[in-house]
Design a protein around this nucleic acid. Structure first.
Lengths: 469, 469
DNA sequence: GGGTATTTGTCCGTATGTATG
DNA sequence: TCATACATACGGACAAATACC
């Protein structure tokens, strides 16, 4: 009668009812229990296995819910026609990865990546708590699709934060959330149109440049002068749209002065164009007076503001946002409502509570202090260890600085020599669309992901790598 | 000495240390405690407020971390130079929503939306548990950016699932995760190129059609015959790429027979084209033999398989995926590495564990049963209440059926009449690119989000709305 | 001017209530 | 019901700076 080979394993992590369920399921799948076969009654099986009736019942219920068996009251439980959706019951993973082997990486001890952020300061426990809370709250509704531009509550919090801290003036309605700046830029090119001529800073963030190109739009590089984008060259380019990073130019690091900002806005008004202001790390500034965002300076609806939580909170939850001017907002609501929100609703909810309870403000303040300290250490160590042999660029804000190295080495040489000492530093040449003739040897050092001690040791090693012979 | 007006409120949900912190922060921000002012010592303040030293200590630590005060061991704690990053201390939300008022919606009691899914069957507690676990595990690493095509573990699980359940043959390497099918299609057009001619089923999913158009590609509608896409028309169109839903055509609901599938693949080989197979609800089939996915039939690398967890698990975590043929994989790895992963890493991790522990298989089986039952009820009720006055289309699979209504009413009339009875049903005409001359009155009924009782009542009301006069 | 008591921030161990399994 | 983990809160020990005599 009970020929089902069920062996109960009294392991805490493997509930008994699941063991029974699995055993029977396997029998059915393997064809050893054919359709129509009567299962042992709950009582009998329970007695046989020396477990509770209810346990067997739960197992049978599971099998029923999944369509393996059918219950006929006062008759018994019978195996159903095999669920034809499952082809084979061969065990797992038919194909193994046969990738080309990853090239052996050099051992990196100190990675001065500009993408690194200070994870040690992330309020794990609070975030966890709020996450769990979000999973509980509004169980049913939270798992449905939400508003396509993002959760209303989060957008409200964001509005007031952007106003107070970044000088961005908008209503919650103007905010559109998205899974990453790249995605949002994609949306933007659709909204503005792909026939328009686009332009961006030269040098500028290479990934952004690629995104524009992949969208199939014409993109003109506009050279920078010491204050940022050259307005004259911009005007000559006939571009309608331009992409800038005024708070902390990437990669140079300069902060666009107010005068240039006004000129840029003037350009947009004159040419009926758009300015895409990417404020990728505008939260972190160390010197000088606060400079309002371009968006806040502009009263003509010509600026699209882009922001992200990837740098200031954590990258892996993937929350970015843009603030649309009213003219584009109309286009968005008329033609782009088909696009579903790409950010997890649960994360949005968590972030909303995080902001609402003041954790965000606290976290930002803390991060400012953390980065300010790291930056102080970095600048101090560079002065001490490298001294006059290098010059620093863009140390007023952000999470990276540039080093112009005066030792006749090429960029590649500098990077490779550093790598030999376990220090990873980054080139700046890749940020140029058009290769410059005179190759300045400028190296990028991000410090967000390193501890103060690591920064000190890293710079010490750099001095060895570059100047000790 | 302690002129800080701190009033401790013994409320459980408002920790004392935060109250102290907030009070002092306010004093500093308001300028009532000028830089250099010495804060009361922990002991004194603790005694004064009748709380513990450590509580004051935690508050002070908070203030320190955020840069409001500086501590000098054994001397005291002093207010720092005001953080110039904060513009104003004006209280919150500068602008209020002034949206146009939402039009008053009719009261919908029974919504036969095709987007609805059975949330009552979602294993909330397991998902919550695994989520929390994911938040704990690998704390540091999980918050960084992950692999750009998705977490390796999840892709492996997905590979074996796709093989066993959908007949898709691939390696984990071929899988690319993304926040929604729309985003993935965007990526695809970039990879295939925007100069190629695209085509899709007519009728077909209107959102997908819009995505293609927004990407700026030429899109030709290919009319369906009773077996699906008309291959002759496809050949004539000179298209290079075609988008189909062979498992359960949207919206018609037919399952593409094996013969047509072979013909379609043949077309792709002959024309060196690509087939985009959107398997949006392929998990749910109720009748007939299992038909392997197009991807599994094709040994020439011409099929791109699209899948999603939005229908089968929950929409709000936003996890979709595509399986790239090897030729596109190369393009992806060469040119599209700049695109960061758009799906939350934490959710990926959670889903990975969900699948690894067998929850996914169990959940899917359960969902099949749930939907099969709902579908049975729906079909039964339609036959009983509406009888011969309607005919059903596409009831073999998926989460919706079509109703051809023979009572001379137009589509709009049918929808409006239903709405008066609190029943929301959906048009099918919007899925046609080119409006047909003879307007068939075909109505779409999704049943995923309704309970069996709601389905019964909904159909009963539909009969009243459409045929009782 | 030198010794001592006091005050101070820091560090550590521990208790309580709550959530979760 | 018991065990665990966590945030919050408490009390005391320690060492150095300061105040007082």
């Amino acid at each position: 009668m009970f020929e089902i080979p069920i062996v109960i394993d009294q392991d805490r992590n493997n509930p008994i009812y699941l063991q029974v369920y699995e055993a029977i399921k396997l029998e059915i799948q393997a064809g050893r229990m054919t359709p129509g076969t009567k299962l042992p009654s709950k009582r009998k099986l329970a007695q046989h296995l020396q477990i509770s009736q209810t346990t067997v019942e739960t197992a049978y219920e599971q099998l029923m819910a999944e369509g393996y068996v059918d219950s006929f009251p006062r008759k018994g439980i019978f195996v159903k026609e095999l669920n034809s959706d499952l082809f084979s019951v061969t065990n797992k993973i038919p194909f193994r990865e046969n990738d080309t082997v990853q090239p052996q990486k050099e051992k990196v001890q100190y990675d001065f990546s500009h993408g690194g952020i200070a994870l040690e300061a992330f309020p794990y426990s609070i975030w966890r708590k709020l996450s769990v809370q979000s999973l509980y709250e509004e169980e049913s509704s939270l798992f449905l699709n939400g508003e396509r531009n993002g959760e209303a509550g989060l957008r409200e919090e964001l509005t007031s934060y952007l106003y107070q801290s970044r000088g961005v003036i908008c209503t919650p309605n103007q905010i559109v959330l998205g899974a990453g700046t790249q995605f949002l830029i994609g949306l933007l090119t659709m909204m503005i149109g792909k026939d328009a001529i686009y332009s961006m800073e030269e040098p500028g963030f290479h990934r952004t440049r690629q995104v524009f190109k992949d969208q199939g739009v014409k993109l003109i590089p506009i050279l920078l002068d010491q204050d940022g984008m050259d307005i004259k060259k911009l005007s000559e380019s006939k571009a309608k749209v331009t992409y800038v990073t005024p708070s902390h130019q990437f990669p140079i690091g300069m902060v666009m002065p107010i005068k240039r900002r006004m000129e840029l806005i003037h350009w947009a008004v004159e040419n009926n164009g758009f300015i895409i202001e990417d404020d990728y790390d505008g939260e972190f500034r160390y010197k000088g007076k606060p400079i309002p965002s371009l968006q806040g300076l502009d009263s003509n609806g010509k600026v699209i503001y882009l922001g992200t939580f990837s740098k200031s909170l954590i990258p892996s939850i993937r929350i970015s946002y843009m603030v649309l001017p009213v003219s584009l907002l109309e286009v968005y609501h008329r033609h782009f409502t088909i696009y579903k929100q790409t950010v997890s609703r649960i994360h949005q909810h968590t972030l909303w509570h995080f902001m609402k309870n003041g954790h965000w403000e606290r976290h930002l303040n803390r991060m400012r202090t953390v980065y300010r300290k790291k930056q102080e250490v970095l600048v101090l160590m560079i002065k001490k260890s490298l001294g006059k042999r290098v010059s620093m660029i863009g140390e007023e804000a952000g999470l990276h600085v540039l080093l112009r190295v005066n030792n006749q080495m090429t960029e590649t040489e500098l990077i490779e020599r550093a790598a030999k000492f376990g220090v990873k530093v980054y080139p700046t040449s890749i940020y140029y669309e058009e290769q410059k003739a005179e190759k300045e040897t400028v190296i990028l050092l991000g410090f967000g992901g390193l501890s103060e001690a690591e920064i000190q040791e890293g710079i010490r090693l750099l001095a060895k790598a570059w100047f000790d012979d």
